[in-house]
Amino acid sequence: MRIARAEHSRRHFLGRLGAATVAALLAGCDAASRSAWLPKVLGVGERASRSAQRLASSRRSMAQEFSPADLSPQFRSNGTANPDNPEYQALAATHFADWRLKIDGLVERPLKLSLQELRAMASRTQITRHDCVEGWSAIGQWTGVPLSAVLRLAVPRPQARYVVFHCADPMDAQGTLYYESIDFDDAYHPQTILAYELNGALLPIANGAPLRVRIERQLGYKMAKYLMRIELVSSFANIGAGNGGYWEDQGYEWYAGI
């Protein structure tokens, strides 16, 4: 009987100790999340995933392409649906007749291409699935110019390592513009296109008109909309907060393969 009571109070104590430990651990995890060191430690996971995914699949591995039967009835617009930017609105007012895509940075031949010039180039059409970091996905048909073709026109310099996309959509009250970056493996991938059509019609403003990039082996936030300028760089340390993209500067992974 005495033993039973001792056992009972020991269990009670263990239970309370367990609950207190869990509460302290959770508070610790939340505090650590806001620290400078923990996100860096956890970032090891991103680098490990990038290496493992590149080992598991080739540089030219192809994303699944679908049939028209799989098309989402309406392709979801996420993030910016209509850029709050007077310069962009002026361009949209004339159906982007005066819009030019600038290609500069570490290139031998800086370019300015109109929508017509881009449409005159050989195009690629693909029905692919767009995977958002939030967890949803949508299937759409995209038509555009392979980024590789545009890069070959501009002739990248040997020092160039990344392709940076500068966009027209302001993301906050300070007017920080959206941007993104990819490396040359993805830039020269056959399915990486500068898309001007969605589901056989002109790309709607809600989905990034007049031009957005498709990077089919990464998550949606990599696929910048409202493209204005493509810059080739050796490092993106001096762009934005230095992490290679708007969402990367908010703590998201630069490599968005999962």
Binding site: S57, S61, M62, A63
Partner: peptide, 8 residues
């Protein structure tokens, strides 16, 4: 769920 691993 990984768009890259889906290409394997």
């Amino acid at each position: 769920l990984s768009p890259r691993l889906d290409t394997v």
